[in-house]
Structure formats: C-alpha cells, structure tokens
Measured scan of single mutants.
Amino acid sequence: ENVVSAPMPGKVLRVLVRVGDRVRVGQGLLVLEAMKMENEIPSPRDGVVKRILVKEGEIVDTGQPLIELG
C-alpha cells in the first residue's frame, strides 16, 4: 500500500512529515480534523515519504489520497 488515503472527510490541520522522511508503521503522518476532533493519521507501513498530496488547511473527502510512500 503506497498511498495513504483519508479515512473520513475533514480538514488537514498539520502535516507531520516531509518528503524524504523515513517513517515507521503507526507513526503519525498528518492530523485531520473531523467533527471538531483531531485525528492523527498513521503510516500503514515502514517506508519513505515520496510525495505529500495535500496542504495544511485543505478540505479532503473520504478516500482522497494524502501521502505517497516509497
């Protein structure tokens, strides 16, 4: 699984990683606000951040690609 998608609609509050960062399974990639709750979106696997597909403040839909892992 190379693309991390939004599990719910919401607003991207914070991106916690940068392109080139090594991440571990379960590590927070970004914080999504949904229904006034902050939800940290975890990495599904170990890898390297290849691309960040959203910006802070952006509104996303369920299933929208957020981050690509390499």
Rank of each mutant, 00 (worst) to 15 (best):
P65Q: 00
V25W: 02
R51T: 08
M8A: 02
P44C: 14
R51E: 07
V54G: 10
G47S: 02
I41P: 08
R51D: 02
K11L: 10
E40M: 12
I59W: 07
G63T: 09
A34H: 06
V23A: 08
A6I: 00
N2D: 11
G70Y: 06
D46V: 13
K55Y: 03
V3W: 00
I41L: 11
K36I: 07
E56D: 06
L13N: 10
G26K: 05
R22A: 03
A34I: 12
P9T: 05
S5A: 09
K50L: 11
G70C: 14
V54P: 00
K55R: 04
L30C: 15
N39H: 06
L13Y: 04
L66H: 15
G10M: 00
P44Q: 06
V19M: 03
I41N: 03
Q27S: 06
E1G: 15
G57A: 12
G20P: 04
V48G: 07
L29D: 15
L66A: 09
L66F: 13
R18E: 01
P9R: 07
E58L: 02
V3S: 04
R14L: 02
V49W: 15
G20Q: 03
V3Q: 09
E56H: 04
T62I: 08
V31D: 03
K11V: 10
K55N: 03
V19S: 13
V12N: 12
E38D: 05
G28A: 04
Q64D: 12
E33G: 06
G28T: 03
V23K: 05
E56Q: 12
R45D: 01
L30Q: 11
G63F: 08
V54F: 07
V19P: 05
S43H: 09
G26F: 04
E1C: 14
G70M: 13
E68I: 08
E38P: 08
G26P: 10
V49L: 00
S43N: 00
R14P: 10
P7F: 05
S43M: 01
E58M: 12
Q27E: 08
G57M: 02
R14S: 01
S43V: 13
E1K: 15
R22H: 09
R22Y: 10
L29Q: 07
L69T: 10
G63N: 10
L29W: 03
E38H: 01
E58K: 13
I67H: 03
L30H: 13
G47C: 14
T62N: 09
V25T: 10
L13C: 14
R51G: 09
Q27G: 11
L32P: 15
D46G: 13
N2R: 15
I67F: 07
V19Q: 12
I41M: 07
V17Q: 01
L66P: 15
A6G: 08
K36S: 08
N39R: 03
M37Q: 01
E38G: 00
K55T: 11
I59E: 09
T62S: 02
V48Y: 01
E56W: 06
E40C: 14
L13S: 00
A34R: 10
G10P: 15
L13E: 04
K50M: 05
L69S: 00
M35N: 01
L13P: 10
K55P: 03
S5M: 03
L32M: 05
E38C: 14
V3R: 14
P9I: 11
L30W: 02
M8C: 15
I41R: 07
I67G: 02
E1S: 15
P65R: 14
K11I: 10
P7C: 14
E58Q: 02
L32T: 06
E40L: 11
K36L: 08
I59L: 04
V60E: 14
V17L: 10
V60P: 13
V31T: 05
R18I: 11
G57K: 10
G20K: 12
V19C: 14
Q64I: 09
M8Y: 12
V12I: 02
N39S: 01
Q64H: 07
R24V: 09
R45P: 07
A6N: 07
V25Y: 11
M35P: 08
V17P: 00
P9C: 14
T62K: 06
K36A: 07
G63C: 14
A34S: 08
D61C: 14
D61F: 02
T62Q: 06
V31M: 11
L53Q: 02
S43C: 15
E68G: 15
V60T: 05
Q27R: 12
E33W: 06
K36N: 12
R24S: 01
P9G: 05
M8K: 06
G47A: 08
P9H: 06
V3G: 12
G26T: 08
A34Y: 13
G63P: 08
G57L: 03
V15W: 11
E56L: 12
E40R: 13
V4Q: 00
K55C: 14
D46Y: 14
A34K: 03
T62W: 01
P42V: 06
I59N: 08
V49M: 00
P7I: 06
